Simulated scan of single mutants.
Amino acid sequence: MRYLLLILVAFACTVPAEKFGSHGDEITPKSAISIDEFLAQVSEEENSFKVRGTIEEVCQMKGCWMTLRNDQGANVRVTFKDYGFFVPKDISGSEVIIEGIASEEVLDEDVARHYAEDGGKEYDESMRNTITFVAKGVLVKES
């Protein structure tokens, strides 16, 4: 009886595992850094990262890009490796884990205008300065 009680208490105290929908290559949530840690490390040189953040915006045409933003307003534009997968268009505000290659970049004006149009925004010259992240895999946290 005592063992049964211990098992029930142990079971009740376990934290349920996070559940994610997966897109692209299979990745795991293990070792993901925060968006702020990522922003402190990213540079003009391409490097590999695994980042946990919240989606601000998703391309409403196809789900072919998304943006992540930290509390200070830094913007990270995420596209998908080889245009090989998309994410659902209705996941703004969801927590995600992304893994891939990132760098600071100045976008071509036509590309920046295209992103503004897809996001339903007016183009602004400041949109050219961005951090680009080419994700090979994306995990979207399920509610």
Score class of each variant (00 low, 15 high):
residue 57 E to D: 14
residue 61 M to Q: 11
residue 15 V to N: 08
residue 20 F to R: 01
residue 93 G to P: 12
residue 60 Q to K: 12
residue 114 H to Y: 03
residue 24 G to S: 03
residue 49 F to H: 06
residue 8 L to T: 15
residue 12 A to C: 11
residue 102 A to W: 01
residue 64 C to I: 02
residue 120 G to R: 10
residue 127 M to K: 11
residue 76 V to F: 05
residue 36 D to S: 15
residue 112 A to Y: 03
residue 128 R to D: 05
residue 5 L to G: 13
residue 55 I to Q: 05
residue 30 K to S: 10
residue 65 W to R: 01
residue 136 K to S: 07
residue 123 Y to I: 09
residue 56 E to K: 13
residue 89 K to T: 12
residue 62 K to N: 07
residue 25 D to W: 05
residue 91 I to L: 11
residue 81 K to W: 02
residue 89 K to E: 10
residue 121 K to R: 15
residue 9 V to S: 14
residue 35 I to T: 08
residue 140 V to G: 03
residue 108 D to W: 05
residue 67 T to H: 06
residue 21 G to P: 00
residue 47 N to H: 11
residue 21 G to R: 07
residue 50 K to G: 04
residue 18 E to I: 00
residue 80 F to Y: 02
residue 93 G to W: 14
residue 124 D to N: 14
residue 142 E to R: 12
residue 47 N to K: 12
residue 88 P to H: 09
residue 130 T to P: 01
residue 132 T to P: 03
residue 101 I to D: 04
residue 99 E to V: 04
residue 22 S to C: 02
residue 75 N to R: 13
residue 92 S to A: 15
residue 39 L to V: 11
residue 116 A to V: 06
residue 45 E to K: 12
residue 125 E to Y: 12
residue 23 H to D: 05
residue 142 E to Y: 00
residue 125 E to C: 11
residue 5 L to H: 14
residue 12 A to V: 10
residue 116 A to G: 06
residue 13 C to Q: 11
residue 55 I to L: 12
residue 66 M to A: 04
residue 68 L to F: 05
residue 89 K to N: 09
residue 105 E to I: 08
residue 24 G to P: 02
residue 7 I to C: 15
residue 107 L to C: 04
residue 129 N to P: 09
residue 3 Y to G: 15
residue 131 I to C: 08
residue 75 N to H: 12
residue 32 A to I: 03
residue 112 A to T: 01
residue 97 I to H: 02
residue 129 N to W: 13
residue 135 A to E: 01
residue 43 S to G: 15
residue 29 P to N: 08
residue 120 G to W: 08
residue 115 Y to G: 01
residue 29 P to H: 09
residue 112 A to H: 02
residue 43 S to F: 13
residue 41 Q to C: 07
residue 93 G to E: 14
residue 119 G to M: 08
residue 139 L to W: 02
residue 19 K to V: 10
residue 59 C to M: 04
residue 19 K to C: 00
residue 73 G to Q: 13
residue 138 V to G: 01
residue 37 E to Q: 15
residue 60 Q to E: 14
residue 81 K to H: 05
residue 64 C to G: 04
residue 44 E to Q: 15
residue 11 F to A: 15
residue 83 Y to T: 04
residue 104 E to L: 10
residue 54 T to C: 08
residue 29 P to W: 07
residue 50 K to S: 08
residue 72 Q to T: 14
residue 10 A to H: 11
residue 109 E to V: 12
residue 37 E to M: 09
residue 113 R to S: 01
residue 90 D to I: 11
residue 64 C to D: 03
residue 12 A to Y: 11
residue 76 V to E: 01
residue 19 K to P: 00
residue 28 T to R: 13
residue 125 E to I: 14
residue 110 D to Y: 05
residue 120 G to I: 09
residue 133 F to C: 06
residue 15 V to C: 07
residue 130 T to Q: 07
residue 130 T to K: 04
residue 9 V to D: 13
residue 1 M to H: 15
residue 18 E to L: 11
residue 94 S to C: 13
residue 49 F to Q: 06
residue 141 K to G: 03
residue 40 A to Y: 10
residue 106 V to Q: 14
residue 82 D to C: 01
residue 21 G to F: 05
residue 118 D to Y: 06
residue 80 F to R: 02
residue 108 D to A: 11
residue 130 T to N: 09
residue 98 I to L: 10
residue 109 E to K: 12
residue 134 V to H: 01
residue 81 K to T: 02
residue 137 G to F: 04
residue 130 T to G: 07
residue 54 T to S: 13
residue 64 C to Y: 01
residue 89 K to C: 08
residue 40 A to R: 14
residue 33 I to A: 06
residue 121 K to W: 13
residue 66 M to P: 01
